[in-house]
C-alpha cells in the first residue's frame, strides 16, 4: 500500500510540475511564435504577390471575427491591408483547405478597387515534394484577375481553370482555400475597409 501511494504521488507531482513548466514556456514563446510565422512566412509572400506597398501589413493586421467554433469561442481571422501613401489598395487574406497530405494554407491578395484577385501564394503545405512543382506557377497565375464576385472553379468541378496534372488533390485544396478567402473578403469587405482606415 505504501509503495502504491509513493508511485501515485511521484507520478502526479511530476506531471503537475511538467504541466506548469510547459504552460510557462508556452506563455513565453506564444508571441515570438506568432511573430516568427508572420515575419518569416506571411511577410515575404505578401511582398511577392502585392507589388509596391509602403506600410508594414504585419503591424497593421486587422483581426475580424468570423463566426464561432464548435466550442463557442470566436474565430479570429487576420486580414493584411497593403497601403500606398496611407491608402489601402489591396488586402491579403489567408485561408486553408485540405490537400493530399494535410492542410494547404494559401494567401490571396485582392485589389480593393477592382475586387479582383491580384495573385495567390502558398504559405505552408505538407504535400508530396516535387509533385506538381513545375505546373504550380502556371496554376497560381490562372487566379490572377479573377473577379471575386464571379464564381470560379477547376475544370474537373465544371469551371474553367486547369489544375496541376498529377496533383489533383493539391489543386483542389488550393482552389477551396482561395474560394474561402475570397468568400470571406466578399462578406466582410465593408468592415475590412472601415477598420483599415
Amino acid at each position: 500500500m505504501r509503495e502504491m501511494i509513493k508511485m501515485v504521488v511521484a507520478l502526479t507531482l511530476l506531471s503537475v510540475i511538467s504541466g506548469f513548466g510547459l504552460s510557462a514556456m508556452y506563455a513565453v514563446t506564444k508571441e515570438p511564435i506568432k511573430m516568427a510565422e508572420l515575419n518569416q512566412v506571411y511577410a515575404p509572400k505578401l511582398k511577392q504577390i502585392v507589388p509596391g506597398f509602403d506600410n508594414d501589413p504585419i503591424v497593421d493586421t486587422i483581426e475580424l471575427k468570423a463566426g464561432k467554433d464548435d466550442k463557442g469561442r470566436d474565430i479570429i481571422r487576420p486580414v493584411f491591408p497593403c497601403k500606398k501613401g496611407g491608402e489601402v489598395f489591396a488586402v491579403g487574406v489567408d485561408a486553408s483547405a485540405g490537400g493530399f497530405g494535410g492542410n494547404i494554407k494559401v494567401l490571396v491578395a485582392i485589389d480593393v478597387k477592382t475586387d479582383a484577385i491580384m495573385d495567390v501564394a502558398i504559405l505552408t503545405h505538407t504535400e508530396t515534394k516535387g509533385v506538381g512543382t513545375k505546373q504550380e506557377p502556371v496554376y497560381l497565375a490562372a487566379f490572377k484577375q479573377l473577379k471575386v464576385a464571379d464564381p470560379f472553379d477547376l475544370k474537373v468541378n465544371g469551371g474553367k481553370i486547369d489544375g496541376m496534372s498529377g496533383a489533383t488533390f493539391s489543386s483542389k485544396g488550393i482552389m477551396a482555400a482561395a474560394k474561402d478567402a475570397t468568400g470571406f473578403y466578399v462578406k466582410n469587405k465593408d468592415s475590412i475597409l472601415n477598420s483599415a482606415k
Binding site: S18, G21, L22, M25, Y26, T29, P32, I33, A36, E37, Q40, V41
Partner: peptide, 15 residues
Amino acid sequence: TFVVIVEMVTHAFVY
C-alpha cells in the same frame, strides 16, 4: 517535457 520545450523554442526563434 524537454522535447516540447525544444519544439516551442525552435518554433519561436529558429523558424
